[in-house]
Design a protein around this nucleic acid. Structure first.
Lengths: 221, 221
DNA sequence: CAAAAAAGTTAAGTATGCTTAATTTGCAAT
DNA sequence: ATTGCAAATTAAGCATACTTAACTTTTTTG
């Protein structure tokens, strides 16, 4: 019943929704999938009819539980394929990403569970992205805040670095921006939304686009 | 340009052609693919138009070099995926077969070559099936004769056991029917085309269907 | 608060890859 | 050689997943 197109659609809506409960515009889905708005509107109608999402014309779409379950399954397959290829073939993150984009629609539940077992049932990938379990349940995790939405000043811990390109990941590593590192936000410039922060007592400024890749959690105490 | 449907079509024609240069009937392709004759006739017309095969209505299809290249590429991907999953996940032949049937249409050339490298560039799979190299070239191999088409009596060596089911593979193993084993054919019953042969000086009789899974080569001297 | 711009939808049309039903072709038996 | 049947093809139709183009709704803004 769920085709490659519908899986990609639901996955995209899920990822676009973020934490907010606002509906996702069909146009933003179109942009991410590289297809026309017309196609995503039509698809919204069909998926709503099948109970995967709710859709009010001109108001966007919102996943139902059924739709979320499909999205989480695809995300699970994607991340497990990535990790599996990363580990067995010694490839880079950049090299496995596009492969996983295709493979996420293949392989039986049986095979995916075997891969999960081989990897010792990981809850997070090396960038901090959570991996849904076989029942589509996400691991417990602290509330993630996009770096740009922090308080200034404030003490935080990095819980996710979601860039897919090696170039930017190397740049982040060079700055000491890694999972579980502690940082202190200093200020945000309204001019271009760039953010200045302290890592290891060194001051660093990141562009708005960079900030969108970095998620943190408040440090208690 | 080459879709899952066309890849499966060309792969099926290639496998059906055997060693003979006779055209393959569109109906036999239909049967193997589980679709109607109408669909395979139509597909034949289209693939002929694209130069993948030659097609004369009512006379069957024959792959061109271009078509063979696609078929060999799919077969390469299939066998490498099988071996890769077999080796990394410790699964059985039966368990990986259906997965490979899907995965053979996914993954980039880059990834397939990495898997090839990981497996140390195998020329044959564990059942004796040849694996085309990255250029689509098959390894050198002795002429393979289906067990049913041997001379009786005659001395042969087993070069391929192509059954996909574990049940029959275990049965064959129990009889000592393995790759590189020497056998002597005794007789073939015209009643049901069953074949009697000697393995380790023990006499064994195999059904016609079993014989179709076993390929041998003449022993010189 | 209207008018223009932007965002989103609907309608019509296309390609792929199937289906069923009607038709044609090839061949085998007399 | 002709008839009759089986094999194969063509024709018509359907579902999916897109496209472009015309239209409608929403949002912005002066």
């Amino acid at each position: 019943m769920s085709t490659v197109s519908t899986e990609n659609y639901l996955k995209t809506v899920y990822s676009s929704a973020g934490t907010g409960r606002k509906p996702v515009s069909t146009a933003s889905v179109a942009k991410k999938l590289g297809i026309t708005n017309a196609a995503t509107s039509e698809m919204a109608k069909k998926l709503a009819g099948n109970g995967y999402l709710s859709y009010a014309p001109y108001k966007g779409v919102e996943l139902t539980e059924k739709g979320k379950a499909v999205a989480l399954k695809v995300i699970r397959r994607h991340r497990l394929w990535e990790l599996f290829l990363l580990k067995t073939l010694d490839l880079s993150w950049e090299q496995v990403h596009d492969e996983a984009e295709i493979l996420e629609h293949s392989a039986s539940d049986f095979l995916i569970d075997k891969i999960d077992q081989y990897l010792d049932f990981p809850s997070f990938d090396p960038h901090g992205a959570p991996i849904p379990d076989a029942d589509g349940k996400l691991p417990e995790m602290p509330e993630q805040i996009e770096l740009g939405n922090c308080n200034f000043p404030g003490d935080y811990k990095i819980v996710r670095v979601s860039a897919k390109s090696n170039e930017i990941m190397r740049y982040f590593s060079g700055l000491g921006l890694k999972l579980d590192e502690s940082i202190t936000t200093v200020k945000k410039l309204s001019f271009d939304n760039s953010v200045t922060l302290l890592i290891d007592n060194k001051e660093v400024t990141l562009s708005e686009k960079m900030c969108k890749c970095i998620f943190v959690t408040s440090k208690k105490g």
